[in-house]
Design a binder for these strands. Structure first.
Lengths: 154, 154
DNA sequence: TAAATACCTACTAGTTAGATAGGATTTACG
DNA sequence: CGTAAATCCTATCTAACTAGTAGGTATTTA
C-alpha cells in the first residue's frame, strides 16, 4: 500500500494552487509549482496533465499562463486527486475489491477488501485541500491521529 | 494503493492453514495449499517462506511435512500477514508516514498520511483470520460495509 | 517579434511483480 | 535401508511499472 511520488507530488501541486487561488494570484506555471515544493519540473508536467484531463485544474496557455483550480479548495477532496493520477483508491491484483472472486476458505475475503477501500474513502474522500492547508482534518478523521501509537511504527 | 497478488495469496494460504488447524489435520504442504486455492505453487513457496521468517507459521520438513499456524487463527491479524509479505501497511515514496517532511503549503500533509495508515490499521490489525473464516468482521469494521455505495465503484 | 508557457511524443534506467527451474537437504514410512 | 515426499536455497526470467529526462511544437502575452 504505497503512496507513490506521483500522488504525493499531485497533492502538493494542488495545495500550491489552492493557496494561490486563496491569494488571487492567477495562473501558476509548472515551473512555479515545481520550485514552490522542490519537485522535478519535467515529471511534474506529466502529473499536472493528468490533473487537467481529470478536470481538477484548468490551464491557460501562452506567456503568463499556467494552471488554476477548477473548483474551490474546500470542494476538492484528496481522494479525487488520488484517482486522477493513480487510479482507483484500492485494487486487489488489479481488480476492484467487489470484483474479486474466491471459493472455499476465502469466501468472505471480498468483504474485507471492500472494508479496506471504505476505510480509505472515509479519510481521503472526506478530506479536502482546504482541510490540509489549514491543518484541521475532518471531525471523524481527527480521532485517528489521537490513538496512542498513531505516529509510531507498528 | 494496491493489494498485491503476493499479499492476496498469503492471506488465502493462511486461511487454508487456519481451517486445517481447526480440523486438526496436521501440517499442510505447499502443494496442498496451492491446490486448495488454485495458486501458483512455485511462487507460493516463496510467499510461505516469508510467513515463516516472520514467525507466523512453522514448518516441518521431510515427508508428511508442511506448514502449520504458529498461533490460533483468532490471534493472527490480517495486518500481520500483510507486513510479513509486503512490508509496512502504508508508505509514502518509500518513507513511513511520520517521516515525511514538507515545507510551506504541505506542512500538514504528514497528518493526513498518518491518518491513512491509522485507518488501514483499524481494519487490518483488528481483523483476524478467524474473523474472515467466519465472515463476521469486527464490530467497528462492519459499519464500513453498510455505507450505501460501499460495494460499488466511486 | 521575442519570450514564456502549455502541450505532445518519445525515450531511458532502474526497480518490482509475478513466476519458474534445478537441485540440496531432511524425514516419515514401508 | 531405500525411496518418496517434503522443505529450503539460489538463480533466473520477462513484463510492467516508476521516476525522470529530452526535444520540439503550439499558443499567447507584452
Amino acid at each position: 500500500m504505497d503512496i507513490s511520488a506521483r500522488t504525493d507530488y499531485a497533492v502538493r501541486a494542488m495545495l500550491t494552487l489552492a493557496r494561490a487561488a486563496d491569494e488571487e494570484r492567477g495562473p501558476v506555471s509548472v515551473d512555479a509549482l515545481a520550485t514552490a515544493q522542490e519537485l522535478p519540473r519535467r515529471f511534474l508536467e506529466a502529473v499536472v496533465a493528468d490533473l487537467r484531463s481529470a478536470g481538477l485544474v484548468e490551464s491557460t496557455r501562452g506567456a503568463r499562463g499556467g494552471y488554476t483550480l477548477s473548483r474551490p479548495a474546500a470542494e476538492v477532496s484528496v481522494g479525487e486527486v488520488f484517482r486522477a493520477v493513480s487510479g482507483p483508491l484500492a485494487e486487489v491484483r488489479g481488480l476492484r475489491p467487489q470484483d474479486t472472486a474466491y471459493t472455499g476458505v476465502a469466501e468472505h475475503l471480498p468483504a474485507l477488501w471492500v472494508a479496506v477501500r471504505a476505510a480509505l474513502r472515509d479519510v481521503l474522500d472526506a478530506t479536502t485541500l482546504a482541510d490540509v492547508l489549514s491543518g484541521r482534518l475532518p471531525e471523524h478523521v481527527r480521532p485517528l491521529l489521537d490513538a496512542p501509537d498513531a505516529w509510531t511504527n507498528r
